[in-house]
Amino acid sequence: MQDFFELIVSGFASGCLYSLMGLSFLLVMRPTGVVNFAVGQYAMLGGFAAVAVMTTILIPPIALPYVPGLLVVLALMALLGAAVEWIAVKPLVDRGAPPVASMLSLLGVLIVLLEVGARFGGTEALPTEPPFGFRRVEFGPFAGTPQSLFTIAVTLVIFAAVWLFFERTLWGRAFEAVSLDRRAAQLMGVNLRLVTVSAFASSAVVAGLVGVLISGTTGAYYQVGMALTVQGFTALVVGGVGRVDGALLGGVLLGLLEALVMRYLPVSSSMTLAVPLVVLLAFLVLRPHGLLANRGGH
């Protein structure tokens, strides 16, 4: 039974990572309508950046402690996100091209980032030490690694902050207005450029954070990107596309399902890779508006 509760905690923690990936999609989708499949590569690069900045692997002279290291990585990710927007999206939006053109150009970016990551970090998984040690924390029937608990706490804080941002701040309202009607928002005095750049930058920051968190458990690996893209998008589709709370719910459910399948179903470990794929296809075909669709939404 204790084993089961530990499984729940670790499944919840990996589900949180999928929720964050979903959020990364959402931060760009809501105000711009663009679907950026390169977010998984942001996470991959975030992981390598964490290894580079916090350990003596990759860049030996630099080995910052966790918190300053994390801040440096996230700052780099913000710059990367803004640069991607400026190079691959802005010229298309200026020309009035449809969102699908941005999606395709971001697929080009995806490959560039993937290759850059593979050159920079190598094609072997880089093992890293968990930043909070190998201890085991118990609370009631539940137990988990400090890394799991840290991941869950960070995710909940971020989702609370994003929710407050959209619901309670003027800036969040500006994002909402842009998502509803770009022209009208501009006429109301919303700075479209600023909203778009911050959307892309914050999306990269959130995905980069996922990479940092993953590097603390399974290490940094150049091929995690596409899997995370699928898992994050699945989280969105399960919860209900366009909804912040949907991304959280969908990601956590997916993480728990993966953990349970891996533990209790007699399938090879490679087949757990199929879980998000099957869930994604099932939802797209049977319930394309997700679980939360009937409770208001758009």
């Binding site: 999606m103 589709v237 797209l284």
Partner: peptide, 16 residues
């Protein structure tokens, strides 16, 4: 399915 949804559904199919 529209644009990005079709893209990811067929991508998932390919992975499967």
């Amino acid at each position: 399915l529209e644009g990005p949804y079709l893209a990811l559904a067929t991508l998932a199919l390919g992975q499967l």
